[in-house]
């Protein structure tokens, strides 16, 4: 268990957070290598099913990151997403999924530093609670 490293899925909006990750990279800012990135056109594209499916497939944590409110490339995608996540998040906690497992953030293309901070925080959060067991297919409680 000591050597265990969490696997974290980062679902990033093409227009902001993904570019933020790029900036973090080219700026040589260090952050934990635990994330696997999926690029999406907008946080509004994120179906809660993606998040559930990731947990079921064995990811220990999921982070969804989009543009700051007001900055959406498509004007309102992130507002719609925000409503969706606002219900998803408490519902997941309600059924007993640890709040650390599924997190949301806004990161712009200029926030390479912040990107690294968020990744570090999510990774540390997930490390603290250990490997995912609930909702993981094929794993007995």
């Amino acid at each position: 268990m000591k050597d265990w490293q969490p696997k974290i899925l980062a679902i990033l909006c093409n227009w902001c957070s993904y570019a933020g990750a790029d900036l973090a990279g080219v700026s040589r800012i260090q952050y934990p290598p635990n994330i696997r990135v999926v690029r999406i056109p907008c946080s509004g594209r994120v179906d809660p099913l993606f998040i559930m499916k990731s947990l079921q497939s064995g990811f220990d944590g999921v982070l969804v990151s989009g543009c700051h409110p007001g900055d959406c490339h498509y004007l309102s995608g992130n507002y719609v997403a925000r409503r969706r996540f606002a219900i998803l998040k408490p519902l997941l906690e309600f059924i007993g999924i640890e709040p650390e497992r599924v997190q949301f953030s806004w990161i712009s293309a200029g926030e390479g530093e912040r990107f690294a901070e968020v990744m570090t925080k999510v990774t540390n959060d997930v490390k603290k609670i250990g490997p995912a067991k609930r909702l993981v297919k094929g794993v007995q409680k």
Binding site: P48, L49, M52, K53, Q56, R84, I87, L88, L91, L92, I95, L135, V136, K137
Partner: peptide, 25 residues
């Protein structure tokens, strides 16, 4: 195919949770 069709517990729960989100509000 997003979710398995057997009554396996995680597939079943995902069906119910997602259905629940679809009818939220």
């Amino acid at each position: 195919q997003w979710i398995g069709k057997t009554p396996e517990i995680t597939d079943t729960m995902i069906f119910h949770i997602i259905r629940n989100l679809h009818v939220a509000g």
